[in-house]
């Protein structure tokens, strides 16, 4: 075999195991999921093709509509908070301050903690009568908040926990973006008489757009898949107040054993994530391409 042919083939040979794994564990299950969405599939029986009946059923299922609304609320609030808090803290940690490496480590620690463990700990923190959060509020003279046992507070509680768990990742991404922007550009703006805020607003932020796009898209994708913290902290309740599409997939699939219906919910979840991602690319896209 000639050197030229070797050069062409060998990279593909290295990529082959990865492709095989992708096909086996992502592509085929994805296609199967699409097919199952068109079937009636009690987990322990064979799937039976029923066309779009599962999707028709979704349109009149109050649980699905509640889950859809909750998922959108969760996605919008957590992504917004993750990005804003991540950006602010990244800017602060980008300044040469004493102890900033320690702070970076502390802020990143929740990211590497196991989500289920963290969820259990937060469930205890949020306990109405013995949680540390209400104990703190009590010291301030504020009445106990039924964090996880009221429909008004359960979703905010999950959002708080989720933002705490993930904003460290956004800090790292924004820090990398900030450090890739040449300092000379900001210095030039300051010399030209711009204030620090103006330099940040008109120089740093526009140059940070590709990083913001990455952070927003990745945060959106991860937020759309929310499951563990809901499962552990509230189980989708009280009522349906924290039922998300991810939790509904689990309930339909592993409690009601309706795999076809669960797959249809998954397909909707995929479409929502795709639509959000496309909107985000559209919104940031033109200015990113430079």
């Amino acid at each position: 075999m000639s050197y030229r042919i070797n050069r062409r083939i060998i990279p593909y040979l290295f990529l082959l195991p990865c492709f095989v794994a992708l096909i086996l564990f992502s592509f085929i299950p994805f296609l199967q999921g699409l097919y199952f969405a068109l079937t009636s599939y009690p987990l322990l029986k064979s799937p039976e093709f029923i066309g779009f009946k599962n999707f028709e059923r979704l349109t009149r299922d109050p649980l699905f509509l509640a889950s859809l609304r909750n998922t959108l609320v969760y996605m919008i609030t957590t992504v917004t908070l993750r990005v804003i808090i991540g950006l602010i803290l990244a800017v602060l940690l980008n300044i040469r301050l004493r102890g900033r490496i320690l702070f970076r480590t502390i802020f990143y620690l929740p990211v590497i903690a196991p989500l289920v463990t963290v969820s259990v700990v937060w469930r205890i923190i949020f306990d109405t009568y013995s949680g540390v959060l209400n104990a703190g509020l009590d010291l301030l003279g504020i009445a106990p908040v039924p964090w996880l046992t009221s429909t008004a507070w359960a979703m905010p509680a999950i959002v708080i926990m989720s933002v705490w768990k993930t904003f460290g990742w956004n800090i790292v991404v924004f820090l990398a973006g900030l450090q890739s922007i040449p300092g000379s550009l900001q210095e030039a703006a300051l010399i030209d008489g711009a204030s620090r805020w103006q330099a940040f607003r008109h120089v740093t932020l526009p140059l940070l757009r590709p990083t913001v796009l990455l952070a927003v898209v990745m945060s959106t994708i991860s937020a759309s898949q929310v499951f563990d913290q809901v499962y552990v902290m509230t189980g989708g309740g009280p009522g349906y107040s924290t039922m998300t599409l991810g939790q509904m997939v689990y309930t339909a699939g592993f409690q009601d054993y309706e795999m076809g219906y669960a797959s249809a919910v998954s397909v909707v979840l995929l479409l929502i994530t795709l639509i959000f991602t496309m909107i985000q690319f559209k919104g940031f896209g033109q200015e990113v391409e430079y």
Binding site: R123, I124, D127, L148, Y231, V232, M233, T234, G235
Partner: peptide, 12 residues
């Protein structure tokens, strides 16, 4: 007492 969260453990 108001119904507990579905995720609450027996101990809680």
């Amino acid at each position: 007492a108001v119904p507990p969260t579905a995720g609450a453990s027996a101990q809680e």
